[in-house]
């Protein structure tokens, strides 16, 4: 059976419109739950980065260092948690970094490695790599530098390793900026 071109075009267009509307409805209906699930996941990551904190408050007036998305202060002032991102292999890698009030890294949680090749770049999210940062006050990629903790890249995943390294460096920089401004403000008072 041969159909007229106009009929075919109209049918196709109508199906596309109906499918788009249906998808929009499903998306709108699931959006609140998706947002809540994303927030719960982010809270879990913050708790993993700064264990022992009972809650976090967004520091809204913080002057953000380049590469830092957000800064959260732990309830009871036990430290800060920063969400940082840096370019990986195909897209940005997102990392959550916890730093206590002594300036030591308490945890690094890589929350988005979706742009990395499975089994290669994705290995930067494993504890074998992230545990290297634990307790460090300063980090370096130079094994000959005695002033900072040496971080060894994941083999065959240089771009992903560099991205996480940048995220943690920026988080440390952000912490110094925050603690400096706090000292200034407390000194002023």
């Amino acid at each position: 059976m041969r159909s007229r071109p106009l009929q075919s075009v109209l049918t196709m267009a109508m199906i596309c419109v109906i499918c788009s509307l249906l998808l929009s409805l499903v998306y709108l209906a699931s959006e609140p739950r998706a947002a809540a699930a994303a927030e719960a996941e982010a809270e879990r990551a913050r708790l993993a980065a700064l264990p022992g904190a009972s809650g976090f408050t967004l520091v809204e007036d913080a002057e953000l260092v380049s590469g830092i998305d957000s800064v959260y202060k732990a309830a009871g002032s036990s430290g800060y948690v920063m969400t940082a991102r840096a370019r990986g292999y195909k897209k940005d890698i997102e990392t959550v970094v916890g730093i206590d009030l002594d300036g030591r890294i308490t945890g690094v949680v890589v929350t988005d490695v979706s742009g990395e090749i499975a089994g290669l770049g994705t290995r930067v999210a494993l504890p074998a790599y992230t545990d290297q940062y634990m307790g460090a006050e300063a980090i370096t990629a130079d094994p000959g530098d005695p002033t900072a903790a040496y971080i060894e890249s994941v083999e065959n995943a240089e771009e992903a390793s560099t991205a996480v390294f940048s995220c943690v460096s920026n988080a440390l920089l952000q912490y110094r900026q925050l603690s400096g401004s706090e000292e200034l403000s407390s000194g002023g008072v």
Binding site: M1, R2, S3, R4, Q7, S8, V9, T11, M12, I15, C16, C19
Partner: peptide, 13 residues
């Protein structure tokens, strides 16, 4: 669905 656009329509659905 006309025969000529059956496959594209199936893919969209």
């Amino acid at each position: 669905i006309p025969y000529g656009v059956r496959i594209p329509c199936t893919m969209v659905i």
